[in-house]
């Protein structure tokens, strides 16, 4: 490949790093979720955008929360475990069972997030992509096939409308 070919090829995924992180995600998930091995996993994240106005300085702040998202087709359950980009730890899991949730759908605008309303009080919007380059903000993992499988599960078996 010529110099220009290399220049315009775009970023390349470090598959070794991606595999290592996928394994770490599995270890963390299985550590906090009973029968974790029964779930398939993807990495997702939430975005919390808030506006601020401090006098003459105003704008918006975005908080990103990294998530390990597990799903089990048989029990139609999604489990969400909060984590950090370096996967040094994780929080408590939250279960979303299709039979118990209020509604679930895939958003169209402004992002194609997977939205779940467990009840009327709140919701979770899970964003997921094949791969996100910025390691400071997101877990470095390539997940094209897993994301396709999750999207298929969510749209055809979990979504309520």
């Amino acid at each position: 490949m010529g110099l220009f070919g290399k220049l315009f090829k775009g970023p390349e995924i470090d598959m070794e790093k991606s595999r290592a992180n996928a394994e770490k995600m599995r270890v963390l998930f299985d550590h906090v979720v009973k029968d974790g091995a029964d779930y398939r996993l993807i990495f997702g994240y939430t975005e919390d955008v808030s506006r601020f106005n401090y006098g003459f300085v105003h704008g918006s702040k975005t908080k990103i929360g990294n998530l390990i998202v597990g799903w089990n087709e048989a029990s139609q359950t999604i489990v969400v475990v909060p984590t950090v980009p370096d996967l040094s730890g994780c929080g408590e899991p939250t279960w979303y069972r299709r039979a118990e949730i209020l509604k679930a759908y895939r958003n169209k605008y402004p992002t194609d997030a997977f939205v779940i309303y467990p009840d009327k009080k709140g919701y979770i919007a899970i964003n997921a992509y094949d791969w996100l380059e910025d390691e400071r903000l997101y877990v470095y993992v390539s997940q094209e096939q897993e994301l396709a499988a999750f999207t298929d599960f969510f749209m055809n078996k979990f979504a309520t409308k």
Binding site: V27, L87, G89, C90, G91, E92
Partner: peptide
Amino acid sequence: PPAWHPFPSDK
């Protein structure tokens, strides 16, 4: 504070 589980050291 919310519960936090560090990455298992044996792994």
